[in-house]
Amino acid sequence: METELTLRIDGQDHHLTIDTRTTLLDALRERIGNTSAKKGCDHGQCGACTVLTDGRRTLSCLTLAVTQGGAEITTAEGLGQDGGLHPVQQAFIDHDAFQCGYCTPGQVCSAVGMLAEYADGWPSAVTEPGTTAELDHDEIAERMSGNLCRCGAYANIVPAVQAAAPRREGTNAGGAR
C-alpha cells in the first residue's frame, strides 16, 4: 500500500510516495540515492545501516520509513559540515580504521551517537555501577558491539573512536523522545 511521506535526510526534505513496507534503509538507498548507509545483514545484527535519528544512533534496516515523517535523519554522508569531514570521520582516516570500508559509514554514525551518549553520562554493561566510566578499550568495545567489521579492523577502530572522543560536553543524546 502506498503512502505519501516527507523524509528529512541530512537537512534536506524529500517528498516521496512509498510502499508502507519500505524500510528507511531502502528509502535512503533506492529512492533518495543516499548509499552511505549500507545493507549488510538487513536484520539488525551487523550495524552497517546505522544512522542518527534526531541525534540518536538507530538501525535503518529495522525502521519502517513510514514511521519517520518529522524525524531528522543524519547519515554518514551528512555528518560533515561546510564540506569538511566530521572529527570521527577524520579520526577513522588518521588511524586507518577500516579495510574494505563497507561497515565504515555505520561505524562512524554509531561512534558519533555513542560519544554523545557517553557525554551525557550513559553507562554501559561494563561500567562499574555508581561510577563514571573512562572511555577505555573495554568501554568502547562494549558500546560499539552493535557494529561488526568482517575485515576485523577493530584494532584500529577502537583507537580512532578513542581519539575522536570529545571532552565531556553534553549533547542531546539523553533528550526527550
Binding site: 538507530t58 529495522l62 554493561a125 552493535g146
Partner: peptide, 10 residues
C-alpha cells in the same frame, strides 16, 4: 545494558 546493542536499545 546487557541486552542487544546501543542502536537497538535506542
Amino acid at each position: 545494558l546487557a541486552g542487544a546493542s546501543g542502536q537497538l536499545r535506542n
